[in-house]
Design a protein around this nucleic acid. Structure first.
Lengths: 329, 329
DNA sequence: TTGTAAGCGTTATCAC
DNA sequence: GTGATAACGCTTACAA
């Protein structure tokens, strides 16, 4: 591998000049610039990232900490993060935290070791509460989940409004016995629940039942199975992510119930399967790609201007009313 | 951040000794060892990765190049890769190549810049053909897709056998007009097609029709729609990945055809949706987590023993016969 | 406008 | 067994 010294030798200048040219500094003569670029081309020179990192105490890498890459929401977000990051010359470290605060802490330490330029992070409720973004030497952008600390950048959904909108839709279509299924580790689940409760309250409909559980298909399956088998079963299931909805779907099938006649199903995130089943599933679609994109853009701006004031981007979900919540007749 | 110098000062030894202790070298006195560990704990010292990389000319990072992280197959594999890699002290760079040879080349160069310790890679047909793994300074492990070059490690499915098994299942259940839908950029699709053809030949059934296309839902949708609308429609669809199958599913719905009475559907990869639709989809399930796990283990061994002879791990798919290919009566 | 040289934090060679 | 020191490849303050 050619180093900056080789380029300098080839171009007949010093390494300082090569570095200046490559950094696009203005105080370099046109002649030197030309010769340097010529040498770079000839030697197929590419700067050594480790050396740059060591020197600058900051790498051209960003960390992406999500709870589970198998969740289609995070998959879509990751895709956007990677696209935008690479476009801007950054690489992406991907880490799965499994909603485990210990793993989150471990990975945040790893991010320090790596001298990452910044982190995009979706914290558990527990970690979010004690998050102090100022203790890190790199900026942090929160996605999907908020934190009490307000001076941190974030890209979020208006979760209370979205939950309320989805609940209103169920109420308008005649459902009254709405069972709520929420991810317990995520602040987002709690916000969406608040929206549900608000809608119920406005409509003067009493809360029916609910379960908090891990955001996994199996957990959703078990919770809904229990609810369906109870003496007093619900007429609609309100879930807060696509994994829980998939689990609910399994339980409903297993009980041989018909959607929406026997039971309605509504959730969040426009996963592939929601339009492949019949009837299709009503849900709040999040602008996933946009979330990843905004978060990464925000992060890169923050890296360039550390003193910039924090901003939170609040995006709106979109209700996609489909067959699974058809009006009761 | 404490550096090795701080630790050396605190422990009253030289940086060389600290380095030796941390590397687990034997030629260090017990006394020095104790003092160093004490200092490390006290200062919460963690070695700087960039400095290590620069010095060793190799980082504790592995690259993972997949065609699209939104494909559930790669999601599952990525998850396994990340788990095993972190377990062994490596971080993972994730890159989406979009089946674009230019992007593949670009990312492979980036891997060089990053001094990665190794790469797990799923090449397009085009890149696989001209792949020369020896030209890279790091080992490469192929997954999912083979390459003509034989002296490279790989973790693969027995694709011909799997394709044949799936086709035999269709034939046994009475389907004769089997339309094949293959990913065009992947050698894997071609192998599975070979299995289909072999099964047809053995059963003395003439090939019916086929399309090669991008491995995307929309592409699968269009290809199947065309086939279904033709004067001579198929009685079964044979697809080679879950994205194409999802597209096929949409087209079948849109034509208001009933599975399996009007048309059967069979594919690869046990994506979530395949058991949520009714009837459930017959497919060859790949041991995705195992693939990622084996690939990463192979890579790490290779990093440690570069001269080790190349080995290919061939895993078997598992036919999950479900409702979408029920026997014709 | 350009070059010299220090220094980022490690590891490993060499001398003791 | 241990320590001083060179080297990895880069950026940048300072000097010219």
């Amino acid at each position: 591998m050619a180093s900056i010294k080789d380029v300098a030798y080839e171009a007949g200048v010093s390494t300082a000049t090569v570095s200046r040219v490559l950094a696009g500094k203005s105080n370099v003569s046109e002649k030197a610039r030309t010769r340097v670029f010529g040498a770079v081309d000839k030697l197929d020179y590419r700067p050594n990232r480790a050396a740059q990192t060591l020197r600058l105490q900051r790498s051209a890498t960003i960390g992406l900490l999500v709870s589970d890459i198998r969740n289609p929401f995070f998959t879509a977000v990751s895709r956007a993060v990677e696209d935008v990051a690479h476009e801007a010359g950054y690489s992406v470290f991907l880490c799965n935290t499994d909603e485990d605060p210990a793993k989150e802490a471990m990975y945040l330490k790893l991010m320090i070791d790596q001298d990452v330029a910044g982190v995009i992070y979706s914290p558990t409720l527990q970690s979010a509460e004690k998050l102090d973004a100022t203790q890190f030497r790199f900026p942090i952008i929160l996605i999907d989940r908020d934190a009490p600390q307000t001076d941190v950048d974030a890209v979020l959904l208006d979760n209370v409004a979205a939950g309320e909108q989805l609940a209103c839709h169920l109420l308008q279509n005649g459902y009254r016995r709405i069972f709520g299924l929420f991810g317990q580790e995520s602040g987002t689940g709690h916000k969406r629940r608040a929206g549900l409760l608000r809608a119920l309250h406005s409509a003067d409909v009493p809360p029916f039942g609910e379960t908090f559980t891990d955001a996994r298909i199996e957990a959703g399956y078990e919770a809904v199975l229990t609810a369906l088998q109870s003496a007093d079963p619900p007429d609609a299931i309100f879930t807060t992510n696509s994994l829980l909805a998939a689990g609910a779907m399994r339980a409903i099938h297993e009980q041989s119930l018909k959607i929406p006649d026997d039971i309605a199903l509504a959730g969040f995130d426009d996963a592939t399967w929601t339009t492949l089943v019949q009837p299709q599933i009503t849900l709040i679609a999040q602008p996933t790609y946009e979330i990843g994109q905004s978060a990464t853009e925000l992060l890169i701006k923050r890296i360039e201007q550390p003193q910039r004031s924090a901003r939170r981007v609040i995006l709106s979900g979109k209700l996609l009313a489909r067959g699974s919540t058809q009006k009761l007749v």
